[in-house]
């Protein structure tokens, strides 16, 4: 397993948020964490990245304990794409170069510059290289942020709602790009998301959190409508359409029983 999370407990001001949470991801897999608002999805990502230290639990990346690593070592193992990314007056190339920070010495090396150029070309973003972030659309900015996390050369990519506030085309492009990168490189990706249909389409594994615990986890093909109903309280049908699984709510109106 490239990433293994065990027995994570987190509490805010005495209120438990995550209780004994565990998960594993292997190389080449995309795992999506799902659940209602405020259930602790982002908290779990922040624990994996050691931005937040849990009360108990371990996070192992490539068999090494994240909580025993320095901040630089963590950044070389885990690439993080935050939910909010600010766009300053800086070119996409320089913004992606920032992702090399955990590897940088005093000077930027030729290897760093070649890696940034290689990542931009690999993601089809070379036309954006000299554009400033503050002139970009939300979709372009998000792609640049993913490129920045990739040049950290991490084992695992962590993405906090990478497609929130993006239109359908950008959502498809970004998630497709992410899945392609994970398949082609020795990587795994863990992301949080609200859109069940996008999660079903682009993930290999799903993990539903309810009441601070893993309610259900497994391959997307094994997801049942009962799981969705129990987690969100909304009755749904899961249908097969043109080779993809689709979640369709049964009724428009609340209350659902």
């Amino acid at each position: 397993m490239i990433l293994s999370v065990n027995n994570i407990h987190v509490a805010y001001r005495g209120r438990p948020v995550l209780e004994g949470l565990a998960m594993t991801v292997d190389r080449g897999q995309v795992l999506t964490i799902l659940g209602p608002n405020g259930v602790g999805k982002t908290t779990l990502l922040r624990c994996i990245n050691a931005i937040l230290k849990p009360k108990t639990g371990t996070v192992m990346v490539e068999n090494a304990d994240v909580f025993r690593m320095s901040a630089g070592e963590i950044a070389r193992q885990l690439g993080y794409v935050a939910q909010r990314n600010d766009a300053g007056r800086i070119t996409a190339f320089d913004a992606v170069l920032l992702g090399r920070k955990p590897h940088l010495g005093w000077r930027v090396s030729g290897k760093d510059l070649r890696t940034v150029d290689g990542a931009l070309k690999h993601l089809g973003l070379e036309h954006l290289a000299m554009r400033h972030l503050d002139e970009m659309s939300g979709g372009e900015l998000q792609k640049v942020c993913i490129a920045r996390a990739l040049v950290q050369e991490p084992s695992v990519l962590l993405l906090d709602e990478p497609t929130s506030s993006l239109d359908l085309k950008n959502q498809m492009e970004i998630l497709g790009m992410l899945r392609r990168v994970v398949r082609q490189h020795p990587l795994a990706a863990v992301m949080t998301m609200h859109d069940l249909n996008m999660a079903l389409r682009f993930s290999d594994l799903l993990l539903f959190i309810r009441d601070g615990k893993v309610y259900w986890t497994g391959p997307k093909e094994e997801l049942t409508s009962q799981v969705v109903k129990e987690v969100y309280g909304v009755p749904v049908d899961i249908l097969r359409h043109r080779g993809h699984w689709v979640v369709v709510p049964q009724s428009d109106e609340a209350p659902w029983t």
């Binding site: 990245n49 931005i51 320095s70 901040a71 630089g72 963590i74 950044a75 885990l78 690439g79 993080y80 794409v81 935050a82 939910q83 909010r84 990314n85 600010d86 300053g88 800086i90 320089d94 913004a95 920032l98 992702g99 920070k101 955990p102 940088l104 942020c145 920045r148 996390a149 950290q152 962590l158 906090d160």
Partner: peptide, 20 residues
């Protein structure tokens, strides 16, 4: 200089890049 660039990108991004 790189720490300030990282903070400009957002606090969470900076933390993800190993910045305290």
């Amino acid at each position: 200089r790189w720490n300030y660039n990282a903070i400009d990108a957002g606090d969470e991004t900076a933390r993800g890049l190993g910045v305290r």
